[in-house]
Design a protein around this nucleic acid. Structure first.
Lengths: 228, 228
DNA sequence: TTGCGTTTCATGAATGATCGTTCATAGAAT
DNA sequence: ATTCTATGAACGATCATTCATGAAACGCAA
């Protein structure tokens, strides 16, 4: 039923044993919570959502068995905070990508896409865990608000950028439809990456998105309008 | 950790108790195997991949506990045959959709997309289970060949249709890229549907795909070329 | 066809492993 | 001295799987 328990434990433990455990009570709490959340992401990334057990958390975190319930009361709550952690990290990441782009809507849109395509600064396990939560949200709605395909903040940003472009050049498409298209495309891209990271080529991912944008918003992303 | 056990058992059992159990040995075998596979799809659709236990199979199938191991040796093998069942059903379904469309590549392509958008003849649980396997394939590669985003038969069909269109009208896009775009789009569409079936509107899904195609292959799917 | 020995199937109680959680205890920070 | 933290053995529940038992379908002789 379950393959690949392998090395894991000791290896990861050694790799993460860098920072010394804080001595003061307040800092220790944050330190341990973070360590458990990291361990959870690692475990989900390696073994899937169903492969996350308390024993695995112990294995990957190097902490004692009771820590999960001490710091999160129940495993269920740890999971919700893991998701929150992932959602926050992802939001901060794409918002930073947008912020560093020039103000034009086309540039913002492209920055968003480039951010998702190259996945720089993102650990692999993170996206896999993120996708695992998204899948779990199908049968456990309590996860939905944070990892919906149409999660409010992200979708609103894409949609408003699309609306700006449409208003600028009178494209014949509704902002909602344009935004959904882009979102779905990125969704498929992630999944494709996760299923086989070796196979994935940022260049191809970028080409797919570029083709889509160039086709939908030719005046902004077409051959004439050169991209950085 | 786990919500919604509710009615399920009795209700489903009553609903499925239509066909009488065959008396001959050969037919009985097929009958029970099918019943277990159905129960597995139902269970995964309701509770997710991790929610599929032998107890759940017993609950949904109404069969005895030993049946899983009698007919499939191990739960693991049942799962692989469930996936095979889903893959076969999906392939048969989209191939039928293509077969009933006129021979032109644009028509074949649209038939494929319309098929995925409206999801007629597809039970909800089926797609959810299918997505669950796809997610599971990320951490369990043995599932990958059958439910890859770029599964050979499907992707090749899309790609060749794209190649035909490109050759016909000299579009400036590679078949591979065009096919990936369409595939990713459908992938995102499915996930969006699964996350909230109530919210999903075939009309919107269709509009998203139509916009993409019209933009990429304007001569075939643009405003001038009317769709059925 | 009927009767009968053989073979195969269906059942569910029992098993050991693992699940998430609890809690008495020892230790450290305040 | 007091309060909070960390530990891991122990617990009951549930997991997948096994297997002794009884029933049913089968092949064949009469």
């Amino acid at each position: 039923m379950e393959r690949d328990s392998s090395d894991a434990g000791s290896m990861r433990a050694a790799a993460k044993e860098s920072a010394e455990r804080p001595r003061s009570r307040g800092e220790a709490k944050a330190y341990f919570r973070a360590k458990l959340i990291d361990a959870a992401i690692e475990a989900i990334g390696r073994h899937g959502f169903s492969g996350l057990s308390v024993s695995r958390l112990v294995e990957y975190s190097g902490l004692a068995r009771g820590m999960v319930n001490l710091h999160f009361h129940r495993k269920d709550q740890l999971l919700h905070e893991v998701l929150k952690h992932l959602a926050d990290a992802y939001r901060a990441s794409w918002q930073a990508a947008i912020a560093s782009a020039p103000g034009a809507p086309a540039d913002r849109l492209w920055a968003l896409i480039e951010h998702d395509v190259v996945r720089k600064d993102h650990e692999d396990r993170t996206l896999i865990a993120w996708l695992a939560f998204r899948q779990e949200a199908i049968t456990n709605p309590s996860y939905r608000p944070l990892c919906d395909t149409r999660e409010a903040a992200f979708f609103a940003t894409v949609k408003s950028a699309c609306a700006d472009l449409i208003k600028q050049d009178g494209y014949d498409i509704k902002p909602e439809v344009a935004a959904l298209g882009i979102t779905f495309l990125l969704e498929g891209l992630w999944l494709d990456w996760a299923l086989d990271p070796e196979r994935y080529r940022p260049k191809v991912g970028r080409a797919v998105c570029e083709a889509h944008l160039a086709a939908i918003f030719p005046k902004h992303f077409g051959k004439s309008a050169k991209r950085p």
